[in-house]
């Protein structure tokens, strides 16, 4: 995968995904390696994102690389009306790799076509966020010892949530079973269900979030976002229905781990935080190792 951009999770094959997961484990065991010494990474955050940007910058620093760029568009020439193409042409002259977040869908694919160096998509609008997916996969692999044959429960906004869509696509390589729990208005879109049908992957849909977690290996929680609802009353109705509480975890499997891309609002009650099955904070930490693995392999350093 040397010199290959990472725009969408479907750009990586099953073998490439597994390679990243294994590399991430190596970096976790030995996080300070000078692999990026002498390299410059362009970090272009046209849209602010504290968590993703700090995670990337930590990964770059731990690998001994240097960073140029900006953390929001107001400090870039985009405010002067410069096109994305021109910004990418310029920065790809200066750097060995570009990490980019942009508020427009498709911006990362376009940048990868204009850039002379690889692009890593750190989120393009509501479209893709593949490094989040790879850190989710690393978290699943680390806690379950495998990615194969797992029962994955996804809860919350399954209609608009890009993290659940990408995770679904990536997990489809590994014979999973899915359980989708959401209000009717935020159900998993038909195109993803058709994709699962075409691969003979089993899935079940639920609107009730109660005592159905016994079979779960992974519980992937997402935030139900207020701005997705045109009807404020409808939001008020569902926002407190899809809340995970510690008492709901009583009869669950020992290997169950709870993941959440963060930030959370109220969908995981704080009484869950001390449960050993809560994994969302470690998950965020895994992001640094996953991103080290992604950058090192794209630059052909590992």
């Amino acid at each position: 995968m040397k010199n290959k951009s990472l725009v969408s999770i479907s750009d990586f094959s099953k073998d490439e995904i597994l390679r990243i997961v294994e590399l991430a484990a190596d970096f976790e065991a030995n996080p300070n390696q000078d692999l990026l010494a002498g390299k410059i990474v362009g970090s272009l955050f046209f849209e602010p994102s504290t968590r993703t940007r700090l995670s990337f910058e930590t990964a770059i620093q731990r690998l001994g690389g240097r960073i140029i760029g900006f953390s929001d568009a107001s400090s870039s020439s985009a405010t002067k009306g410069e096109s994305l193409k021109d910004t990418i042409k310029m920065v790809s002259n200066y750097s060995d790799l570009i990490v980019m977040r942009h508020h427009r869908e498709g911006a990362a694919r376009y940048a990868s076509e204009q850039s002379s160096v690889p692009i890593i998509n750190a989120g393009d609008g509501a479209n893709q966020h593949p490094t989040q997916t790879l850190l989710d996969l690393y978290s699943i692999y680390k806690t379950q010892g495998t990615l194969e044959n797992l029962n994955v429960f996804m809860v919350g906004d399954l209609k608009y949530g890009r993290t659940v869509h990408s995770l679904l696509m990536a997990m489809s390589h590994f014979n999973p079973t899915f359980n989708f729990i959401s209000p009717n208005s935020l159900k998993m879109p038909t195109e993803y269900k058709m994709f699962l049908d075409s691969k003979n992957i089993k899935y079940y849909e639920h609107t009730e979030f109660t005592d159905i977690l016994e079979a779960a290996d992974i519980l992937y929680m997402t935030r139900v976002q207020r701005e997705r609802f045109s009807d404020h009353l409808e939001y008020e109705k569902v926002k407190n229905v899809y809340v995970l509480r510690n008492s709901m975890l009583n009869n669950t499997k020992n290997n169950l781990r709870i993941l959440h891309p963060l930030p959370r609002v109220n969908e995981i009650h704080t009484d869950v935080d001390d449960n050993p099955k809560a994994y969302y904070f470690e998950q965020a930490k895994n992001g640094v190792f996953a991103r080290m693995a992604i950058m090192a392999s794209i630059l052909g350093l590992k």
């Binding site: 508020h103 869908e105 694919r109």
Partner: peptide, 30 residues
């Protein structure tokens, strides 16, 4: 919100369905 509607560039689609007409954007994937 697709980049093609906000940058001076060519659009590009793959045709998923010719009967009902479904064009998948190469950029935003919608």
């Amino acid at each position: 919100n697709c980049i093609t509607n906000n940058e001076s560039m060519q659009t590009r689609f793959s045709v998923l369905d010719k009967q009902k007409l479904a064009l998948k954007c190469h950029y935003c994937e919608k």
